[in-house]
Nucleic acid binder design. Structure first.
Lengths: 223, 223
DNA sequence: TACCATCTGTAATGTTATTGTAATGTTTGA
DNA sequence: TCAAACATTACAATAACATTACAGATGGTA
């Protein structure tokens, strides 16, 4: 995600920037409202994080100017003021959310991501990618190294779930609930069998395997 | 909740501590900034309550040092000074909230709990860090100095427990109950064996060891 | 209806990794 | 210096996982 931070306090800005980058986003920085307006007009950002009080042009004026241009990029306003009236003022100026200093970075991150999600109704991911393995949810196809792989419906659901949680361990209980809709332990080895079948299709024909067993815990899909 | 009180006035400290404990929290105490910094680095706290003026290292310097480490644990600063400028200074140093003496304990409690809640509204702690040792609970991975470390399930549980109580002595009885689900003494050396195996993986290959024996008491994981 | 193909779960069997035990060695503190 | 506490090692039992074959269910088609 591309995020523009408009904040005159360089220290605060670099702190936010660093945190956003660590969470996998691209973050630019403008030092005041005028510069921020210019940058926001020049490039497409997914979210703007705007300090309320700044030299030259304050945050609210900047947002108002942007909205006058018909730019609807979501804006999170940062402010040291916390009164209800200030909050209302901030939202009236065109802000989409309002965060009062001091705030925890985790909260800023959560709000920024919420704003972005709100914009395009939860960014319907239609393609999943893990390493050289790709799944197209609409076409219901799976490809690895350019080779088409045919999966049975249950195998497809299983792989979809694993791909959506790639890098994380997925437990047997999670699989039973999310892939089989079982809410009890069937006392059989259904999972083992399907994992085995899936492996024979997505891993066996290729040099590097993606589906790893984490003994005592579950399975992990990882490049 | 785990809270660290950094306060040189022992009487004040024990008062706060007692109150926090009565509210169901675990509260540790450090007598000055240096000790506080050390303890905060060694263990994971949910909130730090830091007195502003202390011998050796004052509260603001301590918080600044912590932030320089990229430690974002929420900090409530206690101070006898009440001017607006002091408050700003406190927040600039990296404090998250500021409470002026004299205060009512109820207010301190409210603020501490608010800070903890604000930190992650719904995010569960998924990563544990002790020194250069990191554990990702979702991915079920352990890394030290950038090296991946493979652990057996029981070793993983053991280390997870030690990391969650880092800086504290963990007794054999605690380990038997929480890692083995034994509620009796198996009269064997299971723990010794597993501690040994864990050490050979997380400590032996590295210059500084983290897992220390506390003779007659148990073990302590500390940077 | 009968036929066929496809999909999925079960169960039997094979394989491997993990864990506790016990034997033995080492350190520590009184 | 001695006993207790802790550390290390090897090994065998067993629990966890993998694979295969098979059979019931389902749905389409003549």
């Amino acid at each position: 995600m591309r995020i523009l931070i408009v904040e005159d306090d360089r220290e605060a800005a670099s702190y936010i920037r660093k945190g956003l980058r660590e969470s996998g986003h691209v973050a630019d920085h403008a030092g005041d409202g005028e510069e921020g307006l210019e940058m926001a007009r020049a490039a497409e950002y997914d979210v703007l994080v705007v300090d309320r009080m700044m030299p030259r042009m304050d945050g609210l004026s900047m947002v108002a100017a942007l909205r006058a241009d018909d730019d609807r990029t979501p804006v999170l306003i940062l402010s040291a003021l916390g009164e209800v009236d200030d909050r209302v003022e901030g939202l009236k100026a065109g802000g989409d959310d309002y965060l009062v200093k001091p705030y925890a970075f985790a909260e800023l991150l959560a709000r920024v991501e919420a704003l972005a999600r709100r914009r395009d109704p939860d960014t319907v991911r239609t393609k999943l990618v893990v390493g050289d393995l790709e799944m197209d949810l609409l076409a219901r196809t799976v490809v690895r190294e350019g080779e088409d792989i045919l999966l049975q419906p249950r195998e497809f659901r299983l792989l979809e779930f694993l791909m959506k949680h790639s890098g994380q361990v997925v437990t047997r209980t999670m699989l039973l609930e999310k892939v089989w809709d079982y809410h009890f332990d069937p006392q059989t080895n259904v999972i083992d069998v399907h994992i085995s079948r899936l492996r024979s299709k997505i891993d066996k024909p290729f040099p590097r395997s993606l589906l790893h067993t984490v003994r005592g815990a579950g399975y992990r899909l990882q490049a």
